[in-house]
């Protein structure tokens, strides 16, 4: 890493960034080895911020992070390193996971709508990438939770599937204004749900409720409101 730094950051760059944020003349007194580490970390942080435009940490932060008895330079740089390329890798990983789940749906999901659903999700994935190329297209944990839900509730009909503004999967079973069941599958294993259903006693009235629950408990909670009447086969 230091080689990289030395190749890319010129002494003039280093001087410029150092004067912007802290003095490169700061030293750790009476400990040449620690001082050498400190200087290498200064260069590492300068490089990180040079690439990304992030705020440089204060010298105090750097000293505190560097000068622990157990730390090695590689460990600390690894922990602190947050280049924009890491973010891109994270997005790419998420996107690859989502694509793998879509392939799984197409090839292995035991549902008669598996192909249709995989096509729909592929469409959503592609549009999401096109609209916001710098964001994760579909949150893979949300998608994974949705698939697990469909597998455990195999009696459900094919839902309308859209993405929420957070790029989570939102599935909707709606056949009328008073027969509406929508679920957003969160990354955490929870679900936001909305139900509009006929009042069990006064059928001309509509029960409207929403809430957040674990996906595992979702059907148990919503079943009394009759949602299976229009959402299951």
């Amino acid at each position: 890493m230091n080689n990289t730094l030395q190749n890319v950051i010129t002494p003039e760059d280093e001087k410029f960034f150092a004067t912007q944020y802290f003095s490169m003349n700061d030293k750790v007194d009476d400990d040449p080895e620690a001082d050498q580490e400190l200087q290498s970390y200064k260069r590492a942080y300068i490089w990180r911020d040079f690439q990304s435009g992030y705020r440089l940490l204060s010298l105090k932060d750097i000293q505190e992070s560097v000068l622990t008895s157990e730390s090695t330079p590689e460990d600390i740089i690894y922990i602190k390193w947050e280049s924009p390329f890491d973010k891109l890798d994270e997005y790419r990983d998420e996107d690859e996971k989502a694509l793998r789940i879509i392939s799984y749906i197409r090839d292995q999901l035991d549902a008669d709508f598996a192909q249709q659903l995989a096509n729909r999700l592929k469409f959503l994935f592609e549009v999401s990438q096109e609209e916001n190329p710098d964001e994760i297209a579909i949150m893979s944990e949300s998608l994974s939770n949705f698939v697990a839900f469909l597998q455990s509730e195999s009696h459900l009909k094919y839902p309308n599937v859209v993405l929420s503004p957070s790029n989570n999967i939102r599935a909707q079973w709606r056949t009328a204004p008073n027969r509406h069941f929508a679920v957003e599958f969160l990354n955490t294993g929870d679900a936001h749900f909305v139900i509009f259903s006929p009042d069990p006693i006064h059928s001309e009235k509509t029960v409207r409720l929403s809430g957040i629950t674990s996906i595992d408990s979702l059907m148990e909670i919503v079943r009394p409101y009759g949602v299976l009447g229009w959402s299951s086969r």
């Binding site: 549009v127 609209e131 859209v162 929420s164 503004p165």
Partner: peptide
Amino acid sequence: SPLRCTEEGQVTGAAFQLRE
């Protein structure tokens, strides 16, 4: 966005949801 519309093109509630 088409991400918030059904396959038939109907606008869903997701189009009127907020982010955190």
